[in-house]
Design a protein around this nucleic acid. Structure first.
Lengths: 144, 144
DNA sequence: TTTTGTGCAAATTGTTTGCAACACG
DNA sequence: CGTGTTGCAAACAATTTGCACAAAA
């Protein structure tokens, strides 16, 4: 089963944080859209539209940050534009973004393993390949 | 020998662009700092300090863009913060940036070849690994 | 009732754009 | 001279911050 809004709020509470209406709303949205590319703006939108709650954008950022601090959420940068958030548990693929048309494609994590290990062996750096998407040209844009 | 400021201005001129004082200054700076991590702000700084020329930031961006359009310059995003520019000719390595302390390390291009080919074979995407730096933890930050 | 969290508004950072004046070719 | 360029100032997008007020625990 997937992570639920309650899982998220409990984790926040366990970390000594208070559970407020805005926080609960953000948790619900994050849980409900675990496989989307959630941005802070999207969360705000969902709060207003789906839950009919109006939260300030600063609060959205702060709540997302709290969830990240607690370890259940992460954000990634897919090219330019806003950061996208995803549950740590759910993220089982990386992204490649077409720098011309913006199309994104998912790449299974395993595809990166050999590469990450090579770099670790050579440089000592432990890569976090998913934090910044890799740029490139999608098949159709590449044909030009 | 390295690319000179004249090489840059000639290329611009060959593309039908006019050579103006600001453009010449930017070309000189780019040529002189071919192995640095030049940002638009840095270019501006050098223009003012080293060349005693005051260029507007919009002009710096436009000139850098012109150089990119002409194919002799590229920019990359090393984590957050401003884009860094480098001569196409000179760029013989990629970067990995420590997400904790910001340290960057260079990785020879060859290190990526196998990976880029695997992705191309599997997805048809032609990766441009250098456009967005890869995030990670440097050896010392990783030990925590 | 004492912290912690919220909304609001303003600040920040990096980059882009509209436009009138300007100058290369 | 005429079109490409510049500087300026304002617009932008994403995110952050300061602060008085509100509300969890």
């Amino acid at each position: 089963m997937h992570v639920t809004a309650d899982d998220l709020t409990s984790t926040l509470r366990a970390a000594g944080l208070r559970i407020t209406a805005p926080r609960r709303a953000v948790c619900e949205i994050v849980a409900a859209h675990h496989d989307d590319h959630l941005t802070a703006a999207t969360v705000l939108e969902h709060a207003r539209r789906d839950l009919d709650v109006r939260i300030d954008r600063a609060t959205v950022y702060r709540t997302l940050e709290a969830l990240e601090d607690v370890g259940i959420l992460r954000h990634a940068h897919l090219g330019h534009g806003p950061a996208v958030y995803h549950l740590t548990e759910e993220h089982r693929h990386h992204h490649v973004v077409c720098e011309r048309c913006g199309a994104t494609t998912a790449i299974p994590v395993g595809e990166f393993d050999a590469f990450v290990e090579t770099i670790a062996a050579r440089t000592g750096f432990v890569l976090d390949v998913e934090h910044f998407a890799i740029s490139g040209l999608c098949p159709s844009c590449a044909h030009r």
